[in-house]
Amino acid sequence: MSQSNAAFQSVPAASDATSLLCCAPLPNLLPINASRGQAAPPDQPAAQSTVLMPWVGYGTYRLGHKHARAAVLAALQTGYRHIDTAFIYGGQTTELQVGKAIADALQQGIVASREEIFVTTKQWREYHGYEQSTKCLDLSLERLGLDYVDCWMMHWPGPCWEHKPPQSPENHDNQSQQTLEQNDSPWAHAKAGMGQSEMAQLRSETWRAMEDAYRCGKARSIAVSNFTIQHLQTLKQTATLWPPAVNQIECHPYYPQSELVEYCQREGIVVQAYASLGGQDGTKAKWKKLGGKLMESAPVVDISKRLSTAQRTVTPGQVLLRWALQRNCVIVPKTASLTRMSENARVFDFELSQQDILQITKLEDNAVGDEGRLCWRTEPLRMLNFS
């Protein structure tokens, strides 16, 4: 595939599996910001260069600082070449362990060079603003022991407060945004007196720092995470580089975010799905309300049984990952299990029918409005209904 001329490719079909095995070096490459090589008009933001990113990445959220190094090294040994981490993961300890694992892999000859590994990390919202975001990336690079990352994301479009709001997380979830703004608005905790318009400006300064990081080579691509259509449209108004390479979002059958996925793909933004298997923030009460865990849901289990043969077992987890891939979403499943690492990577030797995809997507009907959202459940500013 030509890096300079590649257009956006649909997920590899099962018939291509022999040449696109996930455990091959630099597998399943997806061009991000491809077909954007022409110069932008003077009144339009410029585009990033094309960067190739593996379809399947290894997620490091909640690995734990005692296990992260060994788990990431095991993932690299298994064949993963796309590692997804963040400044805040593990109480700011995971990046350091990821960096040590990469150094181990290079020393042991598991990978021949740094260039074989696609590393994503994320700026944390406590560091919004130009100078703070620049500082955040420098800290990330120091922890990772790298000169650059392949993708640097803005982790969250909203602020981080200086002290916790007095209301409990449960009360925040049950109150309207209007009530919150009238009663000790959490916006005031980002900076004294900050409102929504000021936050949009601060976010644009963060993006400007990211643009400069891209231009000076500290990040091969820049991206966002947890952005809504409204956030993207607002940021575009002040951007000099557009579009973001990626929007990493919670995306699974209980919360498919179809409108956002379609918008991003029209705009040339690659969608990267997290919590594809249901995430780790759900509760027994939440699962009961939705009708059960995703991997135990009737359509997913039935499809896995139908696709399984004497020679090949297709697991419910693989069905869910394949569902995301066939919606043209990059996936970053996390596991510390060697068996599950291999299982999560083996998703290119079977396909779901259109009927299968529709049947799984229909699980969204179990959720009303935002109820299917499983992540950030104790987050006071999780509503995302600000611009």
Rank of each mutant, 00 (worst) to 15 (best):
V111D: 09
S113M: 12
S113G: 15
R114P: 14
R114E: 12
R114I: 08
E115F: 02
F118G: 04
V119Q: 04
V119G: 04
T120M: 06
T120S: 13
T121P: 06
K122L: 05
K122Y: 02
Q123P: 02
E126Y: 02
E126R: 10
Y127N: 06
G129L: 11
Y130K: 08
S133A: 15
T134L: 13
T134I: 11
T134C: 11
K135P: 03
C136S: 14
D138I: 04
L139E: 13
S140Y: 07
S140F: 02
S140G: 06
R143Y: 00
R143N: 13
R143A: 12
L144Y: 01
G145V: 07
G145Y: 04
L146D: 08
L146Q: 07
D147Q: 15
D147G: 15
Y148G: 08
D150K: 07
D150C: 13
D150E: 11
M153T: 03
M154L: 15
M154Q: 09
W156Q: 10
P157E: 03
C160M: 14
C160P: 00
W161E: 05
E162C: 07
E162D: 15
H163V: 08
P165H: 01
P166Y: 07
Q167I: 04
Q167S: 07
P169R: 03
P169C: 04
P169N: 10
E170H: 11
E170S: 14
